[in-house]
Every structure is written in C-alpha cells, then in structure tokens.
Design a protein around this nucleic acid. Structure first.
Lengths: 184, 184
DNA sequence: GATTGATATGCAAGTTATTGCATATGCCGT
DNA sequence: ACGGCATATGCAATAACTTGCATATCAATC
C-alpha cells in the first residue's frame, strides 16, 4: 500500500486537493506510479481518518468546492519511518510480450502494428522527458538535494523510454523478415 | 485478465501442470509477468470451466498426484482472437522512486543502501539473461518464428537490466556527493 | 443552442492479486 | 530421528485496482 506514501510525498511541500493530486499522478508522478482518481480520493479519505493528513474544505465560486489535504506531524513521522522499510517492487505487465511468445502460431501482423505504435509513443515520451530535463535539470550536481531525487526519477524515465524505443527498432527489424517469407 | 492468456501461451506446445506453470512463471515467463501459485491454480480452474483448457488427472506414486492441462480448440481460438485485441500495459510500481522524491526530507542512507542492493541484483540478472542469449539465441535472424518472439522478449529483459544497472551507477554517484556534504 | 471539456468529488460493484494457512508424501542431509 | 526442501494442490480473507456510473457548474467551441 505505497500509494498512500506516494500521495504523502506529493504533499511534503504543498497542500493539494484530490484533483490536484490526480493531475500530478497523470504527469510527473505518473512516470512511475499510476493511480486513478477513484483510488486517490479513497486513499485520501483513509489517510485523513488515520490522522496522517488534515483535510480543509475550501469553498469556491464559479466552480465546485474543493478539499485541501496537508501532511500532519503523524504523517511526516509515518513517511520517515517508511523510508527505512524495504522497498516493494511490482514489475509491470504488458500483453505485448505475451503476444510475442505467441507469434509463431498465427498472424504476426497485429503485433507488428502494435510495435509501430509503441515506437511512436515511446519516441514522444522520450522527447517530452528530455525537454523537461534540458529545461529544469541541466546540471544535476548543482541541484538541491530534493531536486536531485526528482532528477534521478526523471533520468530513469528517460533511460526506460530510450531503451524501449531501441528495442522496438530491433523487434521491427527482426519481425519484418518474418512477415515477408511467411506464406500467410 | 491476461494472466489467462499467458498461461495458454505457455500451453501452446506442451501439457503442463499447475506446478510446472508456477516454475515457468518463476523463470522464463516471469521475466515480464509475475504470478503466484495461488493465482495460477485459480486461473487454471476457471479456464477449464470455460472450456479453454482440458484437465487430465495424472496419478503418481511417491509424490502427490497432479493435473495436466492442455489447450482445447476453443482455447486456441480464444488465444488467436486475443492476438488482435489491443494490448494492455500496466507500468510497474517501485517504492524506490517514491523514496527518491522524498530524499531531501530526511536520511538518504536507506535509499543509497537499497540502490547498492539493486545494482547487485540487476547485475546478476543481466549476467543470467546474457548467458541464456549467448547459449540459445546467438543468431536471431536464423531462429524459427516462434523462437524469434521469445528472443525478443529476452532482449527486452537484457536491455531493461542493463538500463537499470547503468541508472543505479548514475544515482549512486550523484547521491554520494549529497551524502558527504550533508550535516546529518 | 447544444455538445464538449475542465473543474471537483464520490459510490458501488466487480476483478485481480496478495497473504496466510492447510494438507500430504518422499528425499536428502546431519 | 528430525528438520528442511521439493513436489503438488488448494481455501479463505483481505488488499489493491478497475469499471461504470453519478452529480454539479462554468467556459469554450461548433
């Protein structure tokens, strides 16, 4: 249950609403942690009930009222304690790899098509991440401690996208041969 | 629900028991799809009930009886149809990246320690995967279609491990500076 | 004028995955 | 003799996550 800790981490320096958090998870945090708005709102309630977050309703005009969440002392302590626990890793899951295992037993076309889509997708993401790095994280050594951590997460994202992009190239090259000398 | 399809893919060429599958998921298939034995046994029951797998009890002496599962015609059809569906991707989740975001607000020691562990882990995995590649997948172009797919999955694994290993190096280099000029 | 999209939060039901336990036998080492 | 490990399958409870729906207002677009 580390979604709670990801949320608390996002609240280290600023108060945010569920909606704000949702957008954070769609962009920066989302590079390595996916969460839907339903999950976030539920988790926020749970964390507030536990006393790790403090909820403050913020009335608004012209748009729906929102609720600001802030880290409490207890929340900070819990987060600090969590830093000493062993990290949990859930490897990703991707149908495409299962399909690759399957490719000898049927039409390889859909897999090739998907690989081409992925190549485009990862190319776009790579460009985006590199843009962010070039704008805000030019010289990693000179960054503040907090920003060094963020830079490293970004760097992992960049490396991953580039890796996947290269691999798409290899896969398409190898499978195009296969596509051509197959009878079907 | 693509675990079912991963299982069926493993049964394309051979009958296997739940236990056999479990070991496959711990090794080769496990490179990109994680599943516990509880999940596998449950899924097998479901697939047999659906008619996609045929279960055959195999009495044994000296050890517990087992159940062999084989793909049925229906199962093959379902798998072929699934190949045309859009792939689902679940990105992985890793506490370590959340902790990196957190690193400006406390003791960076545990994160550095974990990075060192990861470096070793990914180094070992990389060596293992490369050994397999060098033994069985030397010349990708000359492989059969089915094995080309498996080679590509392996190649992705190798690239990922190498990428992560390199990144660990970058992270440790950057964070060692941080560790030294911090007062605490 | 009507649809779409952004803002903002939430319930309910279902699926998927994890954790912990349970059983039963045989082999291997000490 | 006894503990631990491999073989082999499974149940039950909980946690985590997805899917579909619901509400309400304002701004912008067609």
């Amino acid at each position: 249950m580390a979604l709670s800790h990801a949320i608390m981490t996002a609240l280290l320096d600023e108060e945010l609403s569920g909606y704000d958090l949702m957008r954070k998870f769609e962009t920066s945090l989302g590079f390595f942690w996916a969460a839907s708005h339903q999950q976030i709102y539920q988790e926020l309630k749970g964390l507030a009930a536990k006393g790790w977050l403090a909820a403050t309703p913020v009335p608004q005009e012209g748009r729906p009222d929102k609720i600001h969440y802030a880290l409490t002392e207890q929340g900070r302590d819990a987060l600090a304690a969590w830093m000493h626990e062993e990290s949990r890793v859930k490897p990703g899951k991707d149908d495409l790899f299962v399909k690759l295992y399957n490719i000898g037993h049927g039409d390889p076309e859909p897999v090739i098509a998907e690989l081409q889509q992925r190549k485009v997708l990862h190319g776009q993401r790579l460009a985006l991440y590199e843009k962010i790095r070039d704008r805000h994280y030019r010289n990693p050594e000179t960054l503040s401690d907090a920003r060094k951590g963020i830079y490293l997460a970004l760097s992992a994202g960049i490396r991953q996208e580039r890796m996947f992009l290269d691999w798409c190239g290899e896969a398409l090259a190898l499978l195009s041969q296969l596509g051509s000398d197959q009878t079907k």
